[in-house]
């Protein structure tokens, strides 16, 4: 690992200042993504500013009928919190489908949002990569791309965002609270991660010297009709090839509200307002679910190894909507697809 200096400030303002003052500085929380990338020489910070001692950021609090999750709350603490289990079971299940218990004990809410892609070329400093070194090219497009994106790609990058938690947060329409040198602001979840476009080196709309302080959940938790369906090469401890977070509000057999977010298919959790509008007010039938899936995947493009994801996503969407409508969410430990 490269040499760097380290500090652990005791106040948010101090932490922001420390990163603002040094272009080579980065925040570190659980370290489960950053330390890994530093060992591969992909991330080369000169200074690490540990956010682990910042006061008050490790709490989950009631806020305007919803919950405010501090950035330092670990993935485990969040998934097993009784309020999350009861009111936002989608979020608990998405988190528990990701990584391993050990990693979830260390990983934080803020760090999960900012974890970087698992693209093989991004990790391999012996190859070009526009995300790692802008302008060098994207070998994945004509290379090995089994885990890559099928939606919202650009000619510069076809990487995916690997988080499961973020897919649930997108469906729940969370907001991200951040503090920077100019003060505080909040970012709608849909605006937090970005598509690669011309600048795949930028994953999010967060500035480098802004710190995530919390994630806010709105009151509506969809605790009755929800599912997180994650499909992968290994049944546990593996990233999603395709995942679907589906939540519904039902009135009898009629869908009143529908939200769908896809993981493993794009540079950010993927939502499609047209497909959600199509579901709203309609019947909860497989035909209608298939129509929604077709709409979402209309613009999908395969790059060879990952072309199977288009059909996989189509079926996963239909299956997830069926699970959510029936109120039979996919179990986390039992791997049979319900």
């Amino acid at each position: 690992m490269i040499r760097f200096s380290y500090s652990r400030p005791g106040a948010v303002g101090e932490a922001v200042q420390a990163v603002q003052a040094d272009a080579g500085a980065k925040f570190i929380a659980g370290g489960t993504n950053l330390v890994d990338l530093m060992k591969y020489d992909v991330e080369r910070p000169r200074r690490l500013v540990d956010v682990g001692a910042l006061p008050g950021l490790d709490r989950i609090e009631e806020a305007d009928g919803g919950l405010r999750i501090g950035a330092l709350v670990t993935n485990s603490a969040l998934a097993y919190d009784a309020r999350i289990e009861q009111r936002y079971p989608l979020l608990a299940r998405a988190i528990l489908s990701g990584a391993s218990p050990q990693l979830r004990n260390a990983a934080t809410t803020g760090g999960n949002l900012l974890q970087r892609t698992r693209c093989y070329y991004f990790y391999d400093t012996g190859t070009p990569c526009n995300k790692r070194e802008p302008g060098t090219g994207c070998p994945a497009i004509n290379g090995v791309n089994r885990i890559h994106a099928i939606l919202g790609t650009s000619e510069h990058c076809i990487a995916t965002h690997p988080s499961d938690m973020c897919v649930a947060l997108a469906a729940l329409e969370a907001t991200v609270e951040v503090t920077g040198p100019q003060g505080e602001r909040s970012i709608a979840f849909a605006d937090f991660h970005r598509l690669p476009g011309e600048h795949p080196e930028i994953d999010t709309t967060l500035a480098p010297d802004e710190i995530i302080t919390a994630v806010r959940l709105p009151p509506q938790g969809f605790a009755t009709h929800h599912t997180y369906l994650k499909l992968r090469d290994r049944q546990s401890y593996a990233f999603a090839l395709v995942s679907v977070a589906a939540v519904l509000e039902m009135e009898g057999d009629t869908i009143r509200e529908a939200r769908l977010a896809l993981g493993g298919v794009a540079h950010k959790p993927w939502r499609d307002p047209a497909a959600e509008a199509l579901l709203r007010g309609g019947p909860a039938t497989r035909e209608r679910f298939a129509e929604a899936a077709a709409l979402i995947l209309q613009a999908a493009r395969g790059y060879g190894d990952n072309s199977f994801k288009i059909e996989l996503a189509r079926r996963a969407i239909v299956r997830a909507l069926s699970q959510a409508a029936a109120g039979t969410p996919q179990p986390v430990a039992d791997k049979r697809i319900a």
């Binding site: 570190i28 489960t32 391993s100 050990q102 990693l103």
Partner: peptide
């Protein structure tokens, strides 16, 4: 040494973590 196997698992403040991804100083 990359969080992918669990061989380095230890208990820190009672919780199991991967010691290969934890900076000692933290």
């Amino acid at each position: 040494d990359h969080g992918q196997c669990g061989a380095c698992t230890v208990l820190v403040n009672g919780q199991r973590i991967n010691s290969c991804l934890a900076l000692a100083v933290s």
